[in-house]
Design a protein around this nucleic acid. Structure first.
Lengths: 183, 183
DNA sequence: TCCGTCATGTAATATGTTACATGATTAG
DNA sequence: CTAATCATGTAACATATTACATGACGGA
C-alpha cells in the first residue's frame, strides 16, 4: 500500500491506452486528463523508474517508450478499485469571497466576473473536446467514459456561470459600501 | 511574498472576525470554512507562531486567544488582493471513470451512485447552513458574502447530482460488457 | 551550424498531514 | 479524583513543484 497510488494509477492508466516515453506521458496527462488531473515532471520520472523496478512497466528498446506489463495491468486494476483519495478542499475564490467585507465589493465583483468568464471559456473548450471524442473515438469502448468526464466539466462549468451571475446580481442590489471596511 | 500566503489569509481572516486560540481556530476553519477550505493542525500552530513574530497577531494574556493587530489587518488586506493560487486539479472520481473500461461498468455505477448520494447529502447540509446564516447573521455585513459561499456549494452539489444521474442513465442503456476487459 | 523540440533526470524547496508527546482545565 | 476536552507543539514522513543540468536529434 502506501505511496501516492493515484499517481501510479494515472501513469499506468495512460500507458494502458498506449505505450509512451516519459515526455509524451507528461503531455498526454496535461492535454487529455488536464481537466481533472495533473502530474508534474518531477513526479512522472521517479514514478516510471519505480514502476520499472517493480516490473509494472518495461521499455521498448527500439522506441524507448514505456509499456505496461501483465503485472502492471494487475496492479492498475487493484489501484482502480481502491477508495478515492480526496484532496483537501482549497478554493481560493470562495476563501476571498467569504471575507468579501474586508476585500471590498468592487474587488469581489472583479473576482466573480473573472471566474464567470473563465467558466464560459471552459464550457466552449469542453464542447470542442466532446466533438473530438465523438468523431475520433466513437468506435472505442472508451468513448462513453471519456464523454462522462467531459460532461462533468460541462455541468461544473455551467454551474459556475450560473452561480457567478447570481452573485453579481446580488451585489448589484447591494447598498454600495466603502471597500475594506473592517470592524 | 513567498510562503503559503493562503494559509496566512485563512488564519488572519478567521481572527479578523473574532479572536481565538489555536485550537478554536482549527475548529472554526473546519466547521465554518470546511466546505471550501482546510488547514491541518501542523500548519496552524507554526503559522500562528510566525504571524506573532511578525507582529501580525498578538496574544491576549488573559484568555490566551490570538488577536489580529493593525499590522496584521494591513497584511490581510494585501493577501486578499493577491491573485488566486489554484491548486492542481486532482479528481479521483473522474480519473477512475476515465479508465472505466478497465474498472468495469458495475464499479463505475457504484462510484457514480456513491458520488450522487454524497452530493445530495451535501445539498441538504447547505440548506441547513443557509438557514443558520440567515437567522444568526442577517444584520452583519458579512451575511451576503457567507451566503454566496453556501450558494456556490449548492450550485456545485446540484450539478454533481444532475451529472451523476445523467451518467447512470447512459450506463443503463449501455450494452452490458464483462468488467475489466482490457485489450 | 544553430535553434527548437524531444527527452531524462536530479536537487532544492515548499507544503502539508499524521502521529506523537505533553500538560492544563473542567465537568461529573 | 478522574475522564474528557481544551490546548500547544514537534518530528517524521509524504508529496509535489520548480529550476536546473544535460544531451540527442532533426530541420532551416
Amino acid at each position: 500500500m502506501a505511496r501516492s497510488s493515484q499517481t501510479d494509477m494515472a501513469v499506468l492508466g495512460a500507458l494502458s491506452i498506449e505505450p509512451m516515453t516519459g515526455y509524451a506521458l507528461r503531455e498526454a496527462i496535461r492535454d487529455v486528463l488536464g481537466h481533472f488531473w495533473s502530474e508534474s515532471f518531477g513526479q512522472i520520472y521517479p514514478t516510471l523508474a519505480r514502476l520499472e523496478q517493480f516490473g509494472h512497466v518495461e521499455r521498448d528498446p527500439a522506441t524507448r517508450a514505456y509499456r505496461i506489463t501483465a503485472a502492471g495491468t494487475r496492479h492498475f486494476h487493484e489501484l482502480l478499485a481502491q477508495p478515492i483519495q480526496d484532496v483537501p478542499a482549497r478554493n481560493g475564490l470562495l476563501l476571498r469571497l467569504f471575507f468579501g467585507r474586508s476585500l471590498g465589493i468592487e474587488a469581489c465583483r472583479a473576482l466573480l466576473t473573472r471566474s464567470r468568464d473563465e467558466a464560459r471559456r471552459r464550457l466552449a473548450e469542453y464542447d470542442e473536446i466532446a466533438a473530438t471524442v465523438a468523431t475520433e473515438s466513437q468506435h472505442t469502448d472508451d468513448a462513453v467514459f471519456w464523454q462522462m468526464t467531459v460532461s462533468a466539466g460541462r455541468h461544473s462549468a455551467r454551474a459556475a456561470v450560473a452561480w457567478a451571475d447570481e452573485c453579481l446580481a446580488v451585489l448589484d442590489r447591494f447598498p454600495a459600501a466603502a471597500p475594506g471596511t473592517d470592524r
